[in-house]
Design a protein around this nucleic acid. Structure first.
Lengths: 223, 223, 223, 223
DNA sequence: CATGAATGAGGTTTCATTCAT
DNA sequence: TATGAATGAAACCTCATTCAT
């Protein structure tokens, strides 16, 4: 899973523990200033390590980025696969509704890192980036599974599930990367309700048209 | 419209011409390596100017970013408003279909800058960023107008047009920022066809279900 | 008087007029920011000239400094020589008192340029600097003349007038370059009175001891 | 006492040692060309440090100026306070004479930095400058103490000691900043003798009139 | 295993001066 | 005579990485 990153340590378990720590702490620094503006001094401080120690467990600043993004994506993938897997007991429609809601709530809790991944994945070198894209693909695949199940059950009228799965994933992430606009207009709950309505109708599930939205939250122009 | 940027010249017409030139040439450099990695030396060279001359027309590297993003957004906005305005002669459904197709084709032609804007708008200072977000909002508004017209005509069964308008905009831009996945599966035409189907059904327009997609183009993991 | 400075003009009268103008206007800019921080753009603007025109009448930024300092020193010298010359009708003691007072008042009116000369004469090249030092020497000489007259008349008990003349000149200029301290304690009038008392007693002239000073003006720590 | 300057090191003792080193070495570079013309490359070389290392102990070039001036003033203040304090065993007149002589000799040994402080203190930012002015004030206060003691003992006929204290301080510094004139006429010993005579008579102490000065040293027009 | 002082290349920006118009 | 656009060297400062302790 983890791509090979240089380390001076031979205690693999220690390396893994430290890297997890770095992934968590560095994320805060990266998210605050962006990858390029964050400096290794600040990252080391956030990890409560000296620079020297930090460099025992990573080979370069880019490796820290890799750790951070990979960690965040792995947790996102875990969450989505769990959501998808846990919904076999209920109807496909209900499963899709619940899945979308849970994914949206997860994105809402991880807005900053979601946006960060959109912005900084470009700084990964090819192989690391490919690993991350693979995880993104597996997120889509988990959603595709939900859709395929509904199609097989005759509940969803859709044959090409890929586009729809991407749409669902991006619709959830939009809540983060278009928050400067969406949050003025919707609460998270309203957003979820509205988008679920659109999704279900797109795949041919009849719904009682979602209620209109009036309340406007003013959250200025935060990005 | 244009936020004030420092200049040593008082010849407003010259300043405007040079800045347009900078916006175009610098975009190529920025897109290649990202904002932070691009250096002003390279930008000046791309503009066929000395660094000194470059700094006669801008006050800082961040101003160049502002110029580039604002220029790109202004052209996107222009295009979308034109598309929206030019479609009053045809039925709302046909208008929406054509609009979505044209927007997607425009995004396809401007993939790199589309992605760049997602990644680097964060580097603008507050006021510049707000100006850019305002233009994004006007893009959404132009799409809302199309939807509202179809709703008023009774053709679209949708009451809250905002979410749908965002979805349409993001679906088109997805073609750029998820190209690493979508291009393996769809040609631009297939993508447009598939997504139009989903959009129309989400707003209650009956369509003959779009055909399934089989062909897979392998374009490696380019971002 | 004026050391040769490059000019592209052959109209000597025009050159002289423009240079006088430059000396006056540039002084304001130099005094505000210091010589090195002042830029030629700002100087040209203060002179209501284009950069090109400015460089028709001077050869370099250092020439402007020369013009400014020479102009200020020439006026100081003029003033002091006039003061010294105009006092032949009164007693040496009265002449010295009046001269000191007038010089102090002149320094008070020209505090900024007085300090500026202390700070920036170092930036003149050797020959220009020498010319300026010569003018300073002539200021001292004018004061020496006053002292010598009093000595010859038997009113002043002093044989080496040079040190005393320097002291008098520097005491007056101190009002400018130590204003951050002196102005908290003395008004100009009090300062003059107090210092005249000290000067006269140093050269053996009996005075009714100047009154004590109580009032404290708070002018913060301005330099 | 020392104003806070940014450092990347947390080893306070090391920081203090390095800064002392910088203050000493940078002074030579500054004095040679003035603050603005000196460049950090040259300063780092004079400190036998890389530029990177230099910037670990200071935050900006202006901080180096601050270090240099503060260091020089602190040593001047120390010297003057020591001189003033050490003279309680002798008569006020003798104490004043010795103090003036020692201060003049100290200025003579530190001519360049004395002039430098006159010229470049303006480049300090407000708070740093205020700290330096405070030290100057304490120098004056130490001299005031000497005068006050003589007044209290009935030896000096002077009530306002402030002006006289400033005069004494400036008279000593004059030896540096008017050396282009004074050194042509006086040796240091002659200068001290002559000025002590003037000082003592100004405060009402009878002296056998100081001898005339003939020897003229030609030291060209050095500033 | 842990530290953090040292490095120096490379970044952005300024500005005195020239010269074609 | 007057203009001001163009130049590019050189300035200050940052920061990822190493390595002796």
């Amino acid at each position: 899973m983890t791509v090979s990153i240089r380390t001076y340590s031979e205690n693999l378990e220690l390396v893994a523990r430290r890297r997890q720590h770095i992934a968590l702490c560095a994320a805060r620094v990266f998210v605050k200033n962006g990858y390029e503006r964050a400096n290794v001094h600040e990252i080391a401080a956030a990890c409560s390590m000296s620079i020297g120690t930090l460099y025992h467990y990573i080979g370069s600043k880019a490796d820290i980025l890799h750790l951070v993004i990979e960690h965040a994506l792995a947790r996102k993938l875990e969450a989505i696969e769990a959501i998808s897997a846990n919904s076999t007991a209920i109807s496909p429609t209900e499963a899709l509704k619940q899945a979308f809601e849970l994914i949206c709530r997860r994105i809402d809790e991880n807005q900053d890192i979601t946006i960060f991944i959109y912005q900084e994945t470009k700084n990964l070198e090819a192989s690391a980036r490919q690993g991350c894209l693979d995880m993104e693909m597996r997120c889509v695949a988990a959603i595709e599974a939900l859709l395929t199940r509904g199609y097989a059950a005759g509940d969803f009228s859709i044959r090409d599930v890929t586009a729809m799965a991407h749409n669902i994933m991006v619709t959830a992430e939009m809540w983060a990367f278009r928050r400067w606009s969406l949050r003025k207009r919707y609460t998270l709950e309203e957003y979820i309700t509205e988008q679920i309505g659109l999704i279900l109708r797109a795949i041919g599930v009849e719904t009682d048209t979602a209620g209109s939205i009036q309340r406007t939250v003013d959250t200025a122009g935060q990005l």
